[in-house]
Amino acid sequence: MTRMAIEGLTLRLGSRQFCDKLCLDFEPGQIWGVLGPNGSGKTTLLHTLAGLHSPQDGRVWLAERELAQWPVRERAQQLGILLQSDDSSFPAPVRECAMLGRHPHLEPWQWESAEDWARVDEALERVGLSHIAGRDQRLLSGGERQRLKLATLMVQAPGIWLLDEPTNHLDLHHQVQLLEDLTGEVRRQNQLLLMSLHDLNLAARLCDHLVLLYGDGRVEAGPLAELFESDRLSRLYGHPIRALHDGGQCWMVPG
């Protein structure tokens, strides 16, 4: 299964420095949570890993090849990203929107097969949109739109999943159910997933590794068990956070 690594990565946007000569290995089977305050570079990091942003310095490796060396279409077969914004003012049925995820797997003149449509229907079923598969995408609510983006990513079926704030607009039920379903599947298939999150307890529930972006160039990364402490998280967000223990579980609540 594919692995990813970053080597000497420096990310800057305007005058803000997000990380400096950062080196990290992402192994198959791992679920990473990317945490940090607003504007700390979570999106920039994920975009860099997806090849949508060129870093100031350093390299990103996808398998044995540098990310920049991959042809875009082959890269999209390996690696998929859930973007924060994806909107279109043109009408299109939900089912056709989800089918866009199949694009990298089709030859230039090839049309979608019945098997591709079956994948689309399965993905829509998984995110609970089957009943509105024919609806115009412009009429969807924010949460439904987010689930459609997730379904499109499932149709793309990458080996490496990058999710930029996947819980946006999702209700409690869908946050837990969809992301548990997805992370479970990623672990079973020995794939790799990285997602930026704002909900600390959801991160603890789903992830096994964390990247903490402080927003001033400091970065900490490692197994969840080593980093998930109230003092550290309080420093990360610049806000007091208390740990509440309940049996074996630990809950972080803002103080």
């Binding site: 975009h47 949508l52 875009v72 279409r73 990203i81 994806d86 043109f90 866009l100 990298p104």
Partner: peptide
Amino acid sequence: WAVARPLNLVVRGALQAQALGVD
């Protein structure tokens, strides 16, 4: 007609198109 399917992606924005394999 040759770029018709990539056009379907480009209307979703440059980033989305790039993420799905269209430069």
